[in-house]
Amino acid sequence: MADRLLDYSGLKCPYPILKLSAQYPQFKEGEIVEVIADCPTFEKDIKAWCQKLGKTIINIERREEKIKVTIRI
């Protein structure tokens, strides 16, 4: 079970990743966060983001247009 769910559906890239950046400092280290988005470039963004900020991607799940990425903060 994730500690948090962030739904960025309907937001165009790079908004979701900018929003995530602004929100995540309030999260605790080690929390598991699920991020949902439907922008086709989000997957690329969140991968780059995790790599740069040293976070781990646990799972990626696609359903139709939507993508759900589970990460550890």
Binding site: C13, P14, I17, L18, L20, S21, T41, D45, A48, W49
Partner: peptide
């Protein structure tokens, strides 16, 4: 779009 993403990731990273 690529530029936009580079910028966004750059900002996110520096912000962090």
């Amino acid at each position: 779009i690529n530029l936009n993403h580079e910028l966004a990731i750059g900002i996110c990273e520096h912000f962090d």
